[in-house]
Design a protein around this nucleic acid. Structure first.
Lengths: 337, 337
DNA sequence: CTGTTAGCGCCTTCAA
DNA sequence: TTGAAGGCGCTAACAG
């Protein structure tokens, strides 16, 4: 492919590269006549700056690497959109990457991003391993965690932004209590996932305070898919149970619960109520109408990006831990009992 | 942030940059002793190659730009995953970008990608404007369209990969015919979208051949969301209708139809049957169970990427037009009538 | 097996 | 207002 460089344009215009560079960068000290000539030439020859060379020389790329674990989860799709839009507003571009902290090739991804000299990285994860990973790379590039750290043992070196899981759990407990539920189950927490763990803690603490009993059914796999929810729920429904409501660790899990219930002719909410967490777009679909807790994905993403950008632009900006309050979404899967 | 370069390593190891470069690139002609020393030093100092410099010097980046219009559509999420995995298998990395052909800042995106010297671009779109856009940029970088061109007036310069919409439409018509439907509606085609238009054509041609009547309800907005489907369906249901089945231009539209039907107490499939197109993950959800035509997203994505990579590696590779056969997915929204 | 040199395309002093 | 020169970090060709 033809590749016209700044040198070509300079030659064509009868000036030096420096002058071309000046008009490209909007430096005003160029004779208008030359400026026009150069601009025309650029258009005419389809010249476009080599951003690699530019970044190399400038020492910055204007690129933010965003690592998301599951683009097929609508929650992450929503987040990626918000991250991108916010970044563009501030003249950064986003490099969207699939990748989960537990992958054994996650190092490749960081190497790629750092190798490309991204100006910063957003890591969307609530895995327990996230903080170790961040420590490993934060000496090379600013990183903000979009997800939960261990809030009871805060890490003084890592900035993070997350929905407030503790509060979310409490809201859910209070809502179910108020509907008359006294025996409930928390289904699907992965021990490795701080968000799950804190949602559960918030839920259980509040429940016990209100005098509700909570049965804890955790998820020993390493993913939170509808499939997993389905299997956990089947096992739950298989034995006799007295719980009148289930709080699922996330909406995907809740969808699996619905699936299992339907198969076993258990009606939701007539036979048992169900709450999710996240408010993914699936949840609002006709015939689903899952009651849930909104993750505030857009706000979380914007806060995370904003936090990262200040770190980039002011390297001694202080470490922050931001919690965004979640919001109850009442739909049709919870009933008075 | 500390940035250790090849020069630092060279100095530390007491060799020249060339030697360091050699071990980094696996050139074997380096004294094992030096190789070890260098490798250790690299690890020790957390050295990582500057990929900008490398690409600049090499004249290639190993990057593929992928432009998708809707990452929140599960279909595109699926495609993006497949694109990425296939590319990685062949030692390329993917730059995932949101962007639709109709956006007035789509040029920015191409400029960004070309400026970063991606080795190729996949444009996922079926818009009528796509081919003009591609013509504008294909002089700078190989581009493959993942989506439909005007198949009746093939463009000799553009390679494209797409699910076979004509066949998909026909399959749908035959399926509905075989279930006894004789009056059907095609709902939601956007005139600007070749996929929609050809799905419709395949559907209508086959239907007429079978002696079915088809009512065409097109979508005059510029997006195919559940919202839009909802509104189109409300209008459809508002007046008396004799159709016993609806074929929606895509699953998202179909979901909107379900939503409207539910609201109006019209039962699907008891009162009217419904078919979608795409088989997005929503479609298989419990309580949705939409009958549809599978888009073969993974195959399409892999074929598109494969086609692009051959163009990149062999600049005189011939232009290709690949059609992937779609597959009927029977679920619960179509009934014998 | 290794060092020197030149160059990838751009930007930024420094002089003029 | 402009040009020359040097450098960003890496690779490749050519000597040795």
């Amino acid at each position: 492919m033809d590749t016209v460089t700044i040198k070509d344009i300079a030659r064509l215009a009868g000036v030096s590269c420096a002058t071309v560079s000046r008009v490209l960068n909007g430096t005003l000290t160029v004779k208008p006549e030359n400026r026009e000539k150069i601009l025309t030439l650029c258009r005419q020859y389809g010249y476009r700056r080599n951003l690699l060379a530019r970044s190399l020389s400038a020492g910055k790329t204007g690129l933010i690497g965003c690592i998301l674990s599951d683009l097929d989860n609508p929650l992450f799709a929503e987040m990626s959109l918000a991250l991108e839009q916010y970044a563009r507003l501030h003249d950064y571009r986003v490099l969207l990457c699939h990748g989960r902290v537990e992958d054994n090739n996650i190092d490749n991804l960081f190497d790629f991003l750092i190798g490309h000299r991204v100006d910063g990285i957003i890591l969307a994860s609530s895995s327990r391993q996230a903080s170790a990973l961040i420590h490993q790379y934060i000496v090379h590039v600013p990183i903000v965690l979009q997800g939960s750290l261990n809030i009871f043992q805060p890490d003084p070196d890592i900035s993070s932004v997350c929905v407030d899981s503790l509060t979310g759990g409490r809201i859910s407990a209070e809502y179910l209590y108020q509907l008359g539920h006294r025996k409930v189950a928390y289904l699907g927490a992965r021990e490795n996932n701080y968000s799950h763990v804190f949602r559960r803690k918030g839920f259980i603490d509040a429940a016990q305070q209100l005098g509700m009993s909570v049965r804890d059914i955790s998820n020993s796999t390493n993913s939170s898919t509808t499939q997993v929810g389905y299997h956990l729920a089947r096992r739950f429904f298989f034995d006799p149970y007295q719980e009148t409501a289930i709080f699922a660790a996330c909406d995907a899990i809740a969808l699996g619960v619905m699936s299992a219930a339907k198969e076993l002719h258990i009606s939701i909410p007539d036979d048992i109520s169900l709450m999710g967490f996240d408010n993914i777009s699936y949840a609002g679909l006709p015939n689903i109408r899952l009651s849930t807790i909104d993750h505030q994905a857009k706000q979380v993403a914007e806060a995370a990006m904003s936090c990262l950008l200040t770190q980039i632009e002011n390297s001694k900006a202080s470490v922050q831990t931001i919690l965004i309050p979640p919001v109850l979404v009442e739909r049709s899967t919870c009933q008075r009992c």
